[in-house]
Amino acid sequence: MLTMEDIIRDGHPTLREVAKEVSLPPSNEDIQTLKSMLEYVKNSQDAEIAKKYELRSGIGLAAPQINISKKMIAIHVKDEAGTQHSYTLFNPKIVSHSIEQSYLSSGEGCLSVDEAIPGYVPRYARITVKGIALDGTEVKLRLKGLLAIVFQHEIDHLNGIMFYDRIDKNNPLKPIDNAVPIDR
């Protein structure tokens, strides 16, 4: 079981690397790693388990955050309508996106960043992501709202980008022009 001890913190060089593609079909080790990443995210949202194991709550995790520089992400989050979504993907990539942008009105956080960094993070309002599921099948997802934001945050990790890199340094809380605020 992954714990907070397994998550590397801001400043660690792996967080700034471009992760490598996962060889397909994925190895048993890669499959187990991805399963344990999803298990961490799910456990971190369960109040009893999170307290017992001192887990910080998260909705997504990318392999570089556990010091594995491979393109793997796990996401477990409820959308704006309260519907639960769980995804595990190898080699996810954004294949198309809207011109329209969105952002989390509360700002973004990260399991690898201990302090709160205020500011709006511009993201695409709608994206299409392709990747490989745990069973080796290709998946194509059309996402919007919170789900689109979470996927962009995790895919950024695979490219060595941290969420705060996207915040306007001069005016972090300036509303983003023509962007839809997403409440969480």
Rank of each mutant, 00 (worst) to 15 (best):
L2D: 09
E5W: 03
D6K: 07
I7G: 13
I8H: 10
R9P: 07
R9E: 15
G11C: 12
G11A: 12
T14S: 14
T14E: 13
L15W: 06
R16I: 11
R16T: 10
R16C: 12
E17L: 14
A19W: 01
A19P: 10
A19H: 05
K20T: 09
E21Q: 11
V22T: 04
S23P: 11
L24H: 02
S27M: 07
N28Y: 01
I31R: 10
I31D: 09
Q32K: 13
T33C: 14
S36M: 14
M37T: 09
L38F: 06
L38D: 09
E39V: 07
Y40W: 05
Y40E: 11
N43D: 15
S44T: 06
S44M: 08
Q45K: 03
Q45M: 03
D46M: 09
D46G: 08
A50N: 10
Y53Q: 15
E54R: 13
R56Y: 09
S57H: 04
G58L: 08
I59P: 03
I59F: 06
I59A: 02
A62P: 08
A62K: 01
Q65E: 10
Q65S: 06
I68T: 06
I73A: 01
I73T: 03
A74F: 02
I75P: 06
H76S: 15
E80T: 07
G82V: 08
T83A: 06
S86P: 01
S86I: 01
T88E: 11
F90L: 07
N91R: 01
N91I: 02
I94M: 09
V95M: 03
V95R: 00
V95C: 04
S96G: 08
H97K: 12
E100Q: 14
L104E: 13
S106Q: 15
S112C: 05
V113G: 01
A116Q: 01
I117M: 00
I117F: 00
P118Q: 01
P118Y: 00
V121Q: 01
R123I: 02
R123D: 03
A125T: 00
R126P: 01
R126N: 14
T128V: 15
V129F: 07
K130H: 12
G131L: 09
I132H: 02
I132S: 03
D135H: 00
D135E: 10
G136Q: 07
T137P: 00
T137M: 07
E138P: 03
V139S: 05
V139Y: 00
K140G: 04
K140E: 15
K140D: 07
K140I: 13
L141A: 10
K144V: 06
L147N: 03
A148T: 02
A148V: 02
V150C: 11
V150Q: 05
V150P: 07
Q152P: 14
Q152H: 12
H153Q: 05
E154C: 10
E154S: 10
D156R: 04
D156L: 07
H157K: 12
L158H: 09
N159A: 12
M162K: 11
M162L: 15
M162C: 13
F163Y: 13
Y164L: 13
I167N: 08
K169Y: 04
N170A: 14
N171Q: 13
P172R: 08
L173A: 13
P175V: 15
P175T: 14
D183L: 14
D183M: 13
D183N: 14
